[in-house]
Design a binder for these strands. Structure first.
Lengths: 143, 143
DNA sequence: GTTGAAACGGGGCCGAC
DNA sequence: GTCGGCCCCGTTTCAAC
């Protein structure tokens, strides 16, 4: 993992569909060498995969919320199963502190948020915060 | 935006580097038709871009934390600038509720977390939660 | 929307250095 | 690690339906 690998990782985090030819120019290496490095980064699991980033608002998801969950009883498996069944729940973190879980929701309306919160309240208390804006958007990792 | 577009969006969210040929098979369309649809989804901004997903632990970022920030004075611009200067801060949400901001941190050690918290404390109170695990990992959006 | 053909570029592989 | 050559596959753009 040298500076060239860092360059490659930085580029593919921004341009996931970049061609090897283009990537080799940015890396300052030949095409075969760039190809080898990229494949090694993929095979070693440093690169877990590639994905398209969608614009939630253009899909109708105008509202996003963060919900802290304080579980009353130990019902972790059922809670996670319930959350997994709700496609609007796009992320769930198990955390330390007052709240046991922190989840991220995308919704089309406040009513949808309310429905989801109601489902979760079967497992504990919730504290819901609406996302007003995203000053820093999912920055890339710098190795 | 019909069922075929939904199929395409689902696939590129999982396999960002999929070829048009492969994508056309999953979409059940011809290659030119698939190509047209994908380009329209990109041009319209539904697809914002493509990115590689890295494994933070394999890069040495063994610890992740979530920090709620209650800003004391209106110093939003300076706070965001400070956060942007810290590469370990990978996301920042402006939210409603007790906390004004919620940020996500990747760090190599607890000491690094402590350092970052100290910098932020110049702008307000912080409540830090360590991420124990991630039961739901950044699920794809379903249009 | 489809098919088919043609042109182009890129990827994968090779041996040589 | 680079370079050059090679073939194949995929992409892109046509035309025609």
């Amino acid at each position: 993992m040298d500076r060239i690998d860092v360059k490659i990782l930085g580029k593919v985090q921004d341009c996931g569909r970049i061609s090897i030819t283009e990537l080799s120019k940015h890396a300052g290496l030949s095409i075969p060498a760039t190809n080898d490095r990229l494949r090694k980064l993929e095979d070693s699991g440093v690169i877990k995969g590639y994905c398209a980033q969608l614009d939630p608002t253009k899909l109708g998801y105008g509202i996003s919320a963060v919900v802290g969950i304080t579980t009353l009883k130990p019902a972790k498996a059922k809670l996670i199963a319930t959350l997994t069944d709700i496609p609007e729940v796009v992320e769930c973190l198990h955390i330390t502190g007052n709240d046991s879980y922190l989840i991220r929701i995308y919704a089309r309306s406040m009513a949808e948020i309310e429905d989801i919160i109601a489902k979760i309240n079967a497992y504990g208390e919730t504290r819901t915060s609406i996302v007003l804006s995203i000053p820093i958007e999912r920055r890339k990792l710098v190795p």
